[in-house]
Design a protein around this nucleic acid. Structure first.
Length: 244
DNA sequence: AAGCGCGGTTTATATGGCTG
DNA sequence: CAGCCATATAAACCGCGCTT
């Protein structure tokens, strides 16, 4: 376990067992017990493991509290992975989050833009903005999202699929990439999206050929760092992208 | 007129599957 | 295997008739 790196759920067990100072035999016995057990909500594998290790005497309450608070503070975004509905995540969470970063962003309406017909998500002084969101989860896991959620510094594989992209209907894209420990925003002009080498157009069969997708994989993500919002000046980034 | 309930429609992302 | 396209599915949204 490397210090300083975020503990992903898959590593938490390791973090707990390395804190155990008891004998190898006791540890093995407890791990076997956990393996056999089928926990039911609200009980779970981890509290069961910890209780058993404390009972064996190789772990104490303070260590448990330390592991617990470390995990909580390092994984502030896990609740976002519990949002199961696509629209709950994309619309309710992501758009609200982006709006919270810049009070000048407005939810569009016919009053604001007489031609508005639901083709974009946010509006800033006439700049039309589309918000897209995706969560980083382990590609090789079948577990629920909140179990396979990944940290930004992960070495596991993931694919973020930004889709239903319609560059012709907005000026600027804001991409919200959620990791269990961090939220990253990328701001790109629709031109930059359309010209991106990973942009693939066409999604729904028979559509007018105007909806594209763009997959960002773990090994390609660094190519987008130039679009990343780093100084928290979202308004400035949007205006800059809109000019391009 | 304002509010509610409800069913159909739209929109969002996660993931599957095909193809070279 | 990677890349592209397509489907699954669930909640948010919308509109409308009904009630108060």
């Amino acid at each position: 376990m490397l210090r300083g790196l975020t503990v992903e759920l898959l590593e938490l067990k390791n973090r707990i067992t390395t804190s155990f100072s008891g004998t190898e035999d006791d540890l093995r016995e407890v791990l076997d017990l956990i393996e056999q057990d089928q926990p039911v909500f609200p009980f779970n594998e981890y509290e069961h493991l910890i209780c058993n290790l404390i009972e064996k005497g190789g772990l104490n309450y303070n260590q448990y509290i330390e592991i617990r608070s470390e995990y909580i503070s390092q994984n502030p975004n896990l609740w976002i992975f519990e949002i199961s509905a696509p629209r709950g995540f994309g619309e309710k969470f992501a758009q609200t989050y982006v709006k919270g970063k810049c009070s000048k962003l407005k939810t569009p309406s016919k009053k604001l833009d007489p031609n508005y017909a639901g083709e974009y998500d946010l509006w800033l002084d006439g700049i039309t903005i589309e918000v897209k969101a995706s969560r980083a989860v382990d590609s090789n896991s079948e577990e629920p999202l909140y179990v396979k959620a990944l940290a930004r510094d992960t070495n596991r594989q993931f694919i973020m699929n930004f889709q239903q992209l319609k560059p012709q209907y907005c000026d600027v894209f804001i991409w919200v990439a959620v990791f269990r420990d961090e939220i990253v925003l990328w701001i790109m002009s629709s031109d930059e999206v359309e010209k991106n080498p990973f942009y693939s157009k066409g999604q729904h069969r028979g559509n007018k050929g105007n909806e594209g997708q763009l997959h960002i994989k773990h090994d390609k993500i660094h190519l987008f760092s130039k679009y990343e919002l780093k100084d928290d000046d979202l308004e400035g980034a949007i205006r800059k992208a809109a000019k391009g």
